[in-house]
């Protein structure tokens, strides 16, 4: 037991001599500040909107960087997943539009339709990667609330379009 105590004491002293206490505090502080900062970024709303209910979290399959991904059935734009964001988060430096166009897509994994909100990310010039135009449910411009051939960067500081997300809002209603 005495040997064990000596070993622990020696190791502790060596660690204390070799490490900076301020460094530990700095790293701990950075970690805590970083963790606190994430929720205020514009991606937070998308992330929250996607996970508030078990019903809203579908089983997933496919590649979110591919236009074939099931959530993109009604999209018209650049995939944020190819632009430094993801299917439900805007790339850094862009702002998610609170005003969106909404459609439904069939999830091939569970065979159910989900309501998808195509929130545009705004504030930087067009991403230019992964253009995807599948347009299911798209209506002519005289039906503006159902037309995706519009710049939906509305209610944002900048109306410059960058890319589009595809956020699951909930299950589509089906008459039983």
């Amino acid at each position: 037991m005495k040997l064990f105590d000596q070993f622990v004491e020696q190791r502790s002293r060596k660690i204390a001599q070799a490490s900076s206490r301020r460094g530990v505090l700095k790293r701990l502080g950075s970690f805590m500040a970083g963790a606190a900062a994430f929720p205020v970024l514009p991606v937070a709303r998308a992330a929250n909107a996607d996970t508030t209910s078990a019903d809203k979290v579908p089983s997933e399959s496919g590649d979110p960087a591919s236009c074939d991904y099931w959530r993109y059935c009604a999209i018209d734009g650049y995939l944020c997943d190819c632009c430094g964001g993801s299917y439900n988060a805007c790339p850094p430096g862009t702002e998610m539009s609170p005003i969106t166009w909404i459609g439904t897509c069939l999830n091939p994994v569970d065979g159910r339709s989900y309501v998808i909100s195509y929130n545009d990310c705004c504030g930087k010039t067009s991403c230019g990667s992964c253009l995807c135009m599948r347009d299911e449910g798209d209506r002519p411009l005289y039906r503006v609330d159902k037309a995706n051939d519009l710049n939906w960067c509305l209610g944002t500081e900048s109306s410059v379009y960058h890319c589009s997300t595809a956020i699951v809002v909930g299950l589509a209603y089906e008459d039983s």
């Binding site: 969106t100 909404i102 309501v115 809002v169």
Partner: peptide, 12 residues
């Protein structure tokens, strides 16, 4: 009602 709200109103 929720579905119709989501499809016709929630976007704005």
């Amino acid at each position: 009602a929720l579905y119709n709200y989501q499809m016709s109103c929630q976007g704005c």
